[in-house]
Simulated assay, not measured.
Amino acid sequence: MIENLDPQQAWAVLQDNPAAVMIDVRTSIEHSFVGHPPKAIHVAWKEFPGMQLNPYFVEQVQQHAPDKTAPVLLLCRSGVRSVDAAKALETAGYRHLINILDGFEGPLDEHKHRNTVGGWRFHGLPWQQS
């Protein structure tokens, strides 16, 4: 089952459940330069150049989240790639998947800017840059 939680709810899960793991499915560049939540484990769903699907995604997640019953939270830029990544993990047998709605940067606003109407950073949750 894939659950959808807003960033504040996802942060609460991470605080309340020490077994919970957050997987940042964005590209390496997004994770490093745009920023990421503390302790977010980077495993790209798609990567530059060409935004090719990572054929080792499930295997790489399993290295960081071997317990398929523990909560696995998935984060991308705006909450789209993370859904696809969650579906792949569900097929691989993960049982408690959480898609973080609006992702790290949130949706585009009327001026085509992110971080102004939603997302992890918009809500003032902890984050850092590499």
Rank of each mutant, 00 (worst) to 15 (best):
L74W: 09
A92R: 00
P71M: 00
L14V: 12
L75H: 06
P37T: 10
G124Y: 08
L97P: 10
A92V: 05
L97E: 07
A86S: 13
H36R: 15
D109Q: 15
T69V: 12
F33V: 10
S78F: 00
V117G: 10
V21Q: 08
F33H: 07
H36I: 06
D109K: 15
R114H: 04
L14A: 11
G50R: 09
H96L: 00
D16H: 14
Q52W: 07
H111K: 14
A12Q: 15
H113E: 13
L73Y: 06
R26S: 08
S32P: 02
A65T: 08
N17L: 08
W120F: 03
G79V: 00
W11R: 00
R77D: 01
A20V: 09
W11V: 05
Y94K: 06
K112A: 14
A10Y: 08
E59C: 09
V72Y: 12
G103W: 02
D16N: 14
Y94G: 01
E3G: 07
A44P: 15
D109Y: 12
D109E: 14
L74V: 13
R121W: 05
I41Y: 02
D67R: 13
Q60R: 07
A44R: 01
H31G: 10
S130C: 05
S78P: 10
V25P: 07
L74P: 15
F57V: 03
F33R: 11
N99F: 08
A40W: 11
D67K: 10
Y94T: 03
N99P: 14
L89F: 01
D67P: 14
D109T: 13
H31A: 10
V25F: 04
L73M: 03
V34H: 06
Q129L: 14
Q62N: 01
T69F: 12
V61W: 03
V83P: 06
N99E: 02
P107T: 06
P55W: 04
H64P: 10
N99L: 00
V13A: 04
P107H: 02
P7G: 00
H36Q: 14
Q15W: 13
L108V: 07
P126S: 11
D67W: 14
W120S: 02
E110F: 03
F48S: 07
D6W: 13
A65H: 05
G119W: 04
R114D: 05
K112C: 07
L14E: 14
M51W: 09
M1Y: 00
A88R: 08
A44T: 07
T27V: 12
L14P: 12
L75S: 06
E110P: 12
E59S: 12
A65F: 11
L75N: 12
G118W: 01
Q8A: 01
K39S: 08
C76P: 15
N4A: 05
R81S: 02
S28Y: 06
G124T: 14
T116K: 12
T69L: 15
H36V: 11
N115R: 15
G35R: 03
S32A: 08
A65I: 13
V80E: 00
T91S: 07
L125H: 14
A70F: 09
H111P: 14
V61F: 00
N17K: 11
H96E: 11
K68D: 10
V58E: 01
Q62D: 05
V25S: 01
D24M: 05
D84R: 04
P107S: 06
R77G: 01
L75T: 09
G124F: 01
E105I: 04
A85F: 06
A85P: 15
L125G: 03
R121H: 08
Q9W: 12
V43L: 04
T91A: 11
N17M: 08
